[in-house]
Design a protein around this nucleic acid. Structure first.
Lengths: 231, 231
DNA sequence: AAATAAAATTGATTTACATCATGTTTTTTG
DNA sequence: CAAAAAACATGATGTAAATCAATTTTATTT
């Protein structure tokens, strides 16, 4: 029996990243002097699966997806909104290679932090390391939730989930302009584009949501929540 | 394109847990004096989703599964063989509650380490913290692999996967006595018991494996590997 | 603004796997 | 060692969602 917080496909946390506050002036300076900020356009690849991990990334602006690429299939592991660290998994990876790709859903700003500098600070500042453990664990729990949803819930539930996630955690409005294409949306909810379209239409016909081009409006929040909790 | 190591549903790493070697005598003593060892019989619950996380666990002997329980569905997140830490995710969890259950596949021996003592050592020993980050990341990468397989591969591939995992990583033999029931086996490969039985029969008919009661023998390793890489 | 390309939509068909039903072993237990 | 209960096995049927095919709408380029 799942207790407490509802499990969803969404991986967007509500907390702000505060780990850098545990650094002293020297450490902060060390990080900042080994950092470059890069702009990525919508759709661009920020980090490519299989390449050497030379940086830890901090998304200062934008919205990204972290995903695994197979022969033809691709799996979105998580979505990462601004003010979050990306690529921590590569920190102590014996292969030193990114196990996933990261791409920008919208124009994004990314700070690239030298991975060895990051490692150095970790090894000397236990408080900071604890904060990072904290972040890693929060991430893991969220990914477990998504893992559960994508394997156990059926398509309508997953779709309802994502819609609520976008409204609650990304746009923070019941009405929003969807920035993702139907294809991205489908990938995110683990189904085909055609299925997403058909199911969105069903939601629309059932007056759970209103869709006007890219504008989405949630009409029956509770019903969607119910469907999300397995519909 | 997935590069390097093959991705599989198996979550059993090959490395031994060495993190405690970074502790000094005092820290080790602190851990050891706040530790009890408990025996769990096959099938017993070691840790229950939703309960307060008071301990980090170290599996000194046995084989366990970490799983999420839903209304009716259950998802095996990972399997954990001996000499591994369990429950690290709970370390900094704001809710202080286990997000998953753990159960023993076979008779197991578990060391329960007081979570606050563990936290204390983490906060004072950056080297140890780094090792833990290492473990967390290795775990995450493995879980991502399983996540990918369970969502993208079809049933035959997943089943081939698990058989290879057991042979390669658990029993380290091409012939082994399966300790799991068909039901457990099904749960682990993300399908129904009936499907597992049917597909095992197919593998048997195709002379990929031989089954004699609980005894499994891998006959065509390469073919199974091929099926696993999406068959 | 016409031409071209890409994205979105709709319908028909297929399929992998679950579910249901029922029978047969194997294991457990009084 | 029967009897009851799990676990294992197999066939028939159902179905959620993918795939395939075609059309319409929207966006991009010349």
């Amino acid at each position: 029996m799942l207790t407490g917080r509802k499990i969803n496909t969404c991986t967007v946390g509500l907390d702000r990243c505060t780990c850098f506050e545990s650094l002293n002036a020297d450490e902060l300076e060390l990080i900042n002097s080994n950092l470059v900020e890069v702009e990525f356009k919508k759709g661009e690849t920020i980090c490519k699966q299989g390449t050497f991990a030379t940086h830890v990334m901090y998304l200062s602006k934008g919205l990204t997806k972290v995903f695994m690429e197979g022969q033809q299939e691709t799996l979105v592991l998580k979505i990462i909104p601004e003010d979050n660290l990306i690529g921590l998994t590569a920190l102590f990876n014996e292969t030193n290679v990114f196990q996933y790709s990261v791409a920008a859903y919208v124009d994004s700003l990314v700070k690239l932090i030298d991975i060895n500098v990051f490692r150095k600070v970790l090894a000397q500042n236990a408080k900071f390391a604890s904060e990072i453990i904290n972040i890693l664990n929060a991430n893991t729990v969220q990914t477990y939730g998504r893992f559960y949803c994508l394997t156990q819930k059926q398509a309508y539930g997953r779709l309802a989930d994502i819609i609520l996630c976008l409204a609650d955690r990304i746009y923070k409005e019941k009405e929003f302009e969807l920035l993702l294409s139907r294809k991205d949306f489908a990938e995110l909810s683990g189904m085909t584009t055609e299925s997403v379209i058909r199911m969105l239409k069903k939601f629309k016909d059932d007056k759970l949501i209103a869709i006007n081009g890219k504008k989405f409006t949630i009409l029956k929040y509770d019903k969607l929540q119910e469907i999300s909790n397995y519909g």
